[in-house]
Design a protein around this nucleic acid. Structure first.
Lengths: 188, 188
DNA sequence: AATTTGATGACAGTCACTGACATAGCCCCT
DNA sequence: AGGGGCTATGTCAGTGACTGTCATCAAATT
């Protein structure tokens, strides 16, 4: 087991999720994560900015996907609908499967620090979406509002997907969530 | 300057804001804050859970105010409008004045950790609002969506209030923000 | 005046995170 | 094949946030 085992980053992420599930986030030290991955604490911090980030490294890819979807929408599509369509398609990127998402969300839900990190990732999505809308000629504050409201709709859809029974279809739930958003903001 | 100077908590909050403004959040140690307040580091952590919380202790009062406003709205008012009205009235609670809010927001905007904390405070508002709406008989996910969308509208209004020139009226900006939200989610 | 109560100080300890430097595996070039 | 560089990892020392524990001091209570 020399220095050069492949995929150090992936091993660290795997070990971290396992340990967070087994004994909780706070009760896990970075040294323990590194040890399980066959590495040292210092190396952990070379791959991840902090102890939380190891759970959120996939967020950037999701953001990219969202931005591309919105940027590629026809000009005739209203901002909120472009955002809605982007989020509907994003379900595909949860290939890691509902199983892993469930474990991950359970860990996040159990810890305030991790929820903070998740929220700032969503805020980062929102900012990127707003920026993309502005490039499409949407003025502020409409661009920011469409992005924020869209992220909110997705957040709630995701929660329902995670907490729901069986194997529900994320894209379908997202669609319903955006429909509800429209109904609610119409003052009904 | 004995042990028993009054208002230790307030002195700590004041010293913290000053130092965060002067030299930045990260470059300020808790020991320095405590020293300026004439106290020790240990005492700081008896008053505030962590180094960030000292900037957010007013958040709970705001939440209370919001919840009461929504709970007290007439039954005939639609959920989103009850939330909107609550946020319009909340401007009153920024008695500390735009001046202090400006300094505080500048500090928060400059640091990711502080932005995380702010987001989770807003999420806490949203959860409380959703809960209040449910008590009014609003079903989910409508309750959650109205709360989330409302917080988003307020967040954007607040940003505009802070970054705008002169002394704009927060309540007015909040009203406009909710109107924009309605327009945007209508697919325009 | 004695007692109790609550806030503060003092001190030691853990752990997240960082900077600096050493070392080991891998690739390229001759 | 061998040397030289490049990058990932290891080692070590240090800072600072945060916690547990116990002592101490001021004020309220009796």
């Amino acid at each position: 087991m020399g220095r050069w085992e492949p995929n150090a980053r992936g091993r660290l992420a795997e070990a971290a999720l396992e340990l967070y599930v087994e004994r909780g986030y706070e009760q896990t030290t970075v040294a323990e994560i590194a040890k399980r991955a066959g590495l040292t604490e210092r190396t952990f911090f070379r791959h991840f900015a902090d102890k939380r980030e190891v759970l959120f490294s996939g967020s950037d890819a999701l953001r990219e996907h969202l931005v591309n979807a919105v940027a590629g929408a026809p000009d005739s599509v209203a901002p909120i609908d472009a955002v809605a369509a982007a989020f509907e398609n994003v379900g595909v990127l949860f290939q890691e499967g509902r199983e892993r998402s469930l474990r991950r969300q359970a860990v996040i839900a159990a810890n305030a620090e991790l929820r903070e990190r998740e929220l700032i990732k969503l805020a980062w999505w929102s900012a990127a979406l707003a920026d993309t809308l502005r490039r499409r000629g949407v003025a502020d504050p409409a661009a920011s509002l469409a992005a924020e409201a869209g992220v909110a709709a997705f957040k709630i859809a995701f929660e329902r997907w995670i907490s729901g029974p069986g194997e529900p279809d994320l894209a379908q739930i997202v669609r319903e969530s955006f429909d509800e958003l429209k109904a609610v903001t119409a003052g009904r």
